[in-house]
Simulated scan of single mutants.
Amino acid sequence: MDLDVFVAAHRAEWDRLDTLLKRQRHLTGAEVDELVTLYQRTATHLSLIQSSAPDPRLTGRLSQLVARARATVTGARRASWRDVTRFLTHVFPAAVYKARHWWVPTALLSAAVAALLGWWIGTHPEVRSTLAAPSELRDLTRPGGQYEAYYSTHPATSFAAQVWTNNAWAAALCLILGVFLGLPVLWILFQNMLNLGIGFGLMSSAGRLDTFLGLVLPHGLLELTAVFVAAGTGMRLGWTVIDPGIRTRRTALAEEGRAALGMAIGLALVLFVSGAIEGFVTPSGLPTWARLTIGILAELAFLAYVYVLGGRAVRAGETGDVDATERSATVPTAA
């Protein structure tokens, strides 16, 4: 597309739209109809320029013009409790459900890596000796040692808040850094699985694997599932950079990026629940079977939420993206 010719052909329409917007409170009925038509045309022009001949200055001007026109045509809109309800019952579970082909394999492979690391460390004394001195290892794994004390040395409320913040940050990093071809996500995942494998191996070598699982599983099932969802979504975003499909790369990244942003908000809520379990249930005096039951029920509830509500929403046409009225205008793409 010859940008200079395109600008010369449509500049008058953009100037006219700008004029109508400046005097929007005094428009006649015919001028209102003209404003709507020019808004639609300018949105299409912006999409064409972005996909064919992006020019920062022209794109900025038209983006501002389209945003002003959209606000005038659609009116100001404020988030309401209806939006929150729709997000929790449709948008978020649908986004997680649609990403299941990424995060389920991620979960299975990561769990296998953690198990292999745990077996390797637990069955090879020479590996354990590289981690810490024998006295330090005994202090870590003995009854009442550092692994157990970790969950009870701080007040439950502050500990839960700290855990939630750390996990939410890790999930956000997976979602944000996924755009770099997913490579940073793999590193974050490996670090998490390495820490889990070390604990698994050290406690199993001390004959206290049951204690370790009783401490980790109540909150860890839901917590790790949230991390796996974030990691899978991040890697899907990275793959979009490589293969956007029939969409333009810009459009594909915009759609996947908006879904990832919504996923970050939803996963923060999921991690709040797992953080509360880790802060209040894991260090409690409840018997191990009771703590495990709470963790398993929380995990099953989340999976049911995703596969029942999310599956139903996807079959009804939900994409996990923001509402169509809040997206940038695009032109159709042929397969």
Rank of each mutant, 00 (worst) to 15 (best):
P184G: 01
P184C: 03
P184D: 00
I188G: 08
L189M: 14
L189I: 10
F190W: 11
F190H: 07
M193I: 09
M193C: 01
L194N: 09
G197L: 00
G197V: 04
G197S: 04
G197I: 01
G201P: 06
G201S: 09
L202C: 02
L202H: 09
M203W: 02
M203G: 07
S205V: 05
G207V: 12
G207F: 03
R208W: 04
D210S: 12
L213A: 14
L213C: 05
G214S: 13
L215N: 00
P218C: 03
L221S: 00
T225K: 00
V227H: 14
A231R: 06
G234S: 03
L237F: 02
L237E: 01
L237C: 03
G238S: 08
W239P: 12
T240A: 10
I242C: 08
D243R: 13
D243W: 07
I246Y: 15
R247C: 14
R250T: 07
A252Q: 04
A252F: 04
L253N: 05
E255Y: 02
A260I: 03
A260F: 00
A264T: 08
A268Y: 05
A268S: 15
A268N: 13
V270W: 11
L271N: 09
V273K: 07
G275Y: 02
I277Y: 01
E278S: 08
F280I: 02
V281E: 11
P283D: 12
S284N: 11
S284I: 10
G285R: 03
T288K: 10
A290D: 06
R291E: 06
L292T: 11
I294H: 07
I296K: 02
L297N: 00
L297Q: 03
A298C: 05
A298D: 14
A298F: 09
L300M: 13
L300A: 14
L300Y: 11
F302K: 04
L303Q: 10
L303T: 06
A304G: 15
Y305A: 01
Y307L: 14
